[in-house]
């Protein structure tokens, strides 16, 4: 966080991470992308907008350092410097936690517009962790957002909700980009899971990244560490690539999961020309 006054110079970009449905990995995605973007040398504020049900702090391992929160900041009870918790492990990464005692109606869109404006003066990137649902919490989270990332898992319920959210974002003139999370390639091969292509077909929005199901994400969350620091984790690598693309590096390709790891019978079958 820079201490010098920048006046009305808004340098930051606000990106809301949303999904509609809960439990698809929004918070993990926000934490991982925040860590990855900061590791690439940018200043990042991640903001937990799930007021009353905060979790980004525990996912990031910063739960013991909360003094002020986003409601305090929005209502002018503290300064950005006081509300932003500096992550000592990654330079440039800050968390603005949600309040645990208020509820989602404690803030309105005007309050949030003021918060994002303040944050844009201090940080290069502001990632908003949107709560599940389409109520006030969603409205507040998308206020002031320049871009949106929709997180979706390959399940019918998540895809349907993502479609609804995409419609609401378009109505606010925001063109969202898609992350398909928790892909299990073997299940796709077996015909038991939608592929990322299926999800992309149904939602027809631009893809920005694919994240495979990775047990180590749960292990990282257990300890409050970042999956992007686990250099051998597929999910960690995927988030780092997404961060690079978000910073505008178009040369980073979207790595598709390996859907061709065929079983032995299938291989013999194709050798004999039995496979279609």
């Amino acid at each position: 966080m820079s201490t010098q006054k920048r006046g009305a110079d808004l340098k930051g970009k606000v990106i809301v991470i949303t999904s509609g449905k809960g439990g698809v990995g929004k918070t993990t995605t926000t934490a991982s992308l925040g860590a990855a973007i900061a590791s690439l040398g940018k200043t990042v504020a991640v903001v937990d907008m799930d007021i009353g049900l905060r979790n980004l702090d525990v996912v990031m391992g910063l739960e013991n350092r909360i003094v002020y929160n986003v409601v305090d900041l929005a209502l002018g009870r503290c300064q950005v410097k006081q509300a932003a918790i500096r992550d000592r492990r990654i330079k440039g990464l800050y968390l603005i936690p949600a309040s645990q005692s208020d509820n989602k109606n404690s803030l309105n869109t005007d309050d949030m517009a003021r918060v994002t404006k303040k944050l844009k003066q201090e940080f290069d990137y502001i990632l908003i962790d949107c709560p599940a649902g389409i109520e006030q919490g969603f409205e507040n989270s998308v206020t002031g957002a320049d871009e949106a990332v929709v997180v979706c898992t390959p399940e019918v319920s998540a895809v349907r909700d993502a479609d609804r959210i995409i419609g609401l974002l378009y109505a606010r003139s925001i063109t969202p980009k898609l992350i398909v999370n928790r892909i299990v390639p073997q299940m796709v091969i077996n015909g038991d899971m939608l592929s990322h292509k299926d999800v992309e077909d149904v939602l027809s929005i631009e893809l920005i990244g694919l994240v495979e199901m990775d047990d180590r994400v749960i292990a990282a969350t257990n300890t409050g560490s970042y999956i992007t620091n686990d250099k051998t984790s597929k999910a960690g690598q995927a988030y780092t690539r997404i961060a690079q693309r978000m910073l505008g590096d178009k040369t980073i390709p979207i790595k598709e999961p390996d859907y061709d790891q065929k079983g032995i019978w299938s291989k013999i079958g194709s050798k004999l020309g039995l496979k279609k």
């Binding site: 015909g191 939608l194 149904v202 299938s266």
Partner: peptide, 27 residues
């Protein structure tokens, strides 16, 4: 695999849950 290799033998092609999911979603 079942649908591809054995399916050819037994002449039945059961629609995968993946395909069903996609169609249901589109509707």
């Amino acid at each position: 695999m079942k649908n591809g290799f054995f399916g050819k033998f037994f002449g039945k092609t059961k629609e995968s849950s993946r395909d069903i999911a996609k169609k249901r979603l589109q509707f």
